[in-house]
Write a protein that binds this DNA or RNA. Sequence first.
DNA 1: CGTAGTATGTACGCTAGCGCACAATATGGC
DNA 2: GCCATATTGTGCGCTAGCGTACATACTACG
Lengths: 239, 239
Amino acid sequence: MQNHPPQFNQNHLLAALPPAELERLKSHLELVHMPLGDVLCESGGRLSYVYFPTSAIISLHYILENGSSSEVAGVGNEGMLGISLFMGGENTPTWATVQTAGYCYRLKGPLLLQEFNQGGPLQRVLLRYTQALITQISQTAVCNRHHTIEQQLCRWLLLTLDRLNSQELVMTQELIASMLGVRREGITEAAGKLQQAEIIRYRRGHITVLNRAGLQEHVCECYDVVKKEFDRLFRDVRK
Amino acid sequence: MQNHPPQFNQNHLLAALPPAELERLKSHLELVHMPLGDVLCESGGRLSYVYFPTSAIISLHYILENGSSSEVAGVGNEGMLGISLFMGGENTPTWATVQTAGYCYRLKGPLLLQEFNQGGPLQRVLLRYTQALITQISQTAVCNRHHTIEQQLCRWLLLTLDRLNSQELVMTQELIASMLGVRREGITEAAGKLQQAEIIRYRRGHITVLNRAGLQEHVCECYDVVKKEFDRLFRDVRK
DNA sequence: CGTAGTATGTACGCTAGCGCACAATATGGC
DNA sequence: GCCATATTGTGCGCTAGCGTACATACTACG
């Protein structure tokens, strides 16, 4: 697991800011630990802070009337939670819960808004991130329609892996199922196949990835699309 | 069909601008007719213009490696095409094609960008729209996972209806199927049920909605969520 | 060290939607 | 008015994933 003390630049958005800009924000950035399962925002709820994860992962998901749910995107150290604060409307129908315990830096909403409205590099970075998030959500929509549970599991594992500095995720099959919006048994079956192929190993809430390349052989194209889009959008973000 | 001459304020985003702002843009807004099937943007392609539909409807969709496709959102008179121009990155993996022929006002990309960067009411309106678009895409993702073809067809018909001033859509079942990312036969079946219930009537590429309330009885919650979110975000947009 | 409770494995019938094949019917262009 | 073509109807068998039920196995905690 992640034992390093958190650093500002472990969050890619903070890291993408010009040093002077980050320096200015530092005194307002508060480090907080987020426990697994913590609900940061319910549907229609208002966030008081925006969160920049370093080691935590937050899941953006919807809960339907019949109780079933689906993740539309995850937010890890590549992003932030709380875009509705600067996009307008202040809240969304989305839920946000902690999917992997860890640390975030947080910033008071009004302060972020004020900074955003300066229109400088921070605005640029946040809008780019929002664009990347849209791609992620869109790809989830398409993937939900056309790809198998096994493919989607691989996508989800890879995206989660990219947000951690570890090959092990603390995660029950039940939880993964609710993220993907499928039955727990569906995950048991798909994960069983991957384990037989010696791509992953799991025991009661711990999944270890043995062979990342193996995941990439089983994943659908959706992972690559999202990954490349994030890379592309942040490669030249400072220009 | 729509025989009125197009007006600027038929597009809700343009209508939401303060009169002075709209006045300033008018001389740059060019009215163009968009024929059915026109591809405005391929995956990774760059738009030279942004488009504000009045009577046209544009579909944002993905095409997968295996050739299947799915719409992630539609853009009608409630919105605009080309958010990536101001969000950053200039292009996206999304395709944009004309789903219903009609008119759009278009604006040169660099000009829009310049206006956006003023940070005034236009920026506010465009960001709010983007937020609403995110809700629409998210809801599509969830709907794809959990709802039946019939429910999704109703959602799609209602959303499309809201963008037209007409009860009749010019639309083959084949086209609807490719939007929803399902088989054409699936649409034939679902549409058959709706026709038997006297909710719609169709003949070779023309669908007439006889009973809008009937559609709302068969639709899933997703329609309402999207609809309400658009209403909410634009109710107070000028404040 | 035993046990309660959580997590995972497995089985079975069921349904929605798929893929394919082909029939039937409408419509616009000649 | 006729025909080529686009559109819609229908009928298979098939599969992925669902819902349910219950068995097993791990592990944390007393």
